[in-house]
């Protein structure tokens, strides 16, 4: 299994956000997307998730039956961006069990909450939680449904150091079991075996297909 992007270009309005971005992420490895604000890190994540149709190029998941076009790819992805997709009126367990039943089976809810360091908060309404706690419940969402590709955008922004470390452990475990992670972040996730993709916001930048602005450098 391999997540492959080929000469991706995405437009927003009249503006081309990036152009000619290529990458290949095999199972068990992470791609860390770096770059200054406005360079299109979030846009790239959204394009992989299928929310933004690419103006050129394509993303696909090789070695996965029926995963050719963007919308089928999305079925194998988890998406964790700035919003936590939690309903404050529902309890934490209600939130997670809904996503589990809607998206597919995975880890038990109580076990997932334990993994993010929030055991026993299942029957508290999500609206009562702090920003960091909500974030950790959102991370638990990635666990309650098993999907191979995790697309995460600034996953640790609201987390303290201890929780950030816990998230890095979760990511490592996911990679260890053959998963793929694409992370857009400023912060160091502490992933040793990560590939890096540096975006810069020079519009019309044309990197060479297998290097340049879209470096996929294995450590």
């Amino acid at each position: 299994m391999q997540l492959v992007g080929e000469r991706l270009a995405v437009d927003r309005g009249d503006r081309r956000i990036f152009d000619g971005v290529s990458f290949a992420v095999p199972a068990g490895s992470a791609l860390v997307v770096t770059g200054p604000n406005g360079s299109g890190k979030s846009t790239l994540i959204k394009a992989i998730a299928g929310f933004l149709p690419p103006a050129a190029g394509s993303v696909r998941l090789d070695g996965m039956a029926g995963a050719d076009d963007g919308w089928r790819l999305a079925e194998h992805c988890h998406y964790l961006a700035h919003d936590n997709a939690l309903k404050g009126q529902l309890t934490v367990a209600e939130n997670l069990s809904f996503w589990q039943r809607f998206l597919g089976p995975g880890l038990d809810i109580e076990a997932a909450l334990e993994k993010v360091g929030l055991p026993g908060i299942g029957d508290i309404p999500a609206g009562y939680l702090s920003a960091g706690q909500k974030r950790r419940v959102a991370i638990a969402r990635l666990l309650v449904t098993a999907r191979p590709v995790w697309l995460v955008d600034e996953p640790t922004a609201a987390l303290d150091a201890a929780s950030g470390k816990r998230f890095a452990d979760i990511v490592r475990k996911h990679l260890g079991s053959g998963g793929i992670v694409v992370a857009a972040t400023h912060q160091d996730l502490g992933l040793k075996a990560a590939r890096f993709l540096a975006l810069d916001n020079a519009a019309g930048h044309h990197p060479s297909p297998h290097g340049g602005g879209a470096q996929a450098a294995a450590a």
């Binding site: 998730a49 299928g50 929310f51 999305a74 079925e75 992805c77 988890h78 998406y79 961006a81 700035h82 919003d83 936590n84 997709a85 939690l86 309903k87 996503w99 809607f102 998206l103 597919g104 969402r141």
Partner: peptide, 13 residues
């Protein structure tokens, strides 16, 4: 849409 659920709903099978 505001709480991000719509994106996840759209990614289901």
């Amino acid at each position: 849409r505001e709480d991000g659920s719509l994106a996840i709903l759209a990614m289901a099978g």
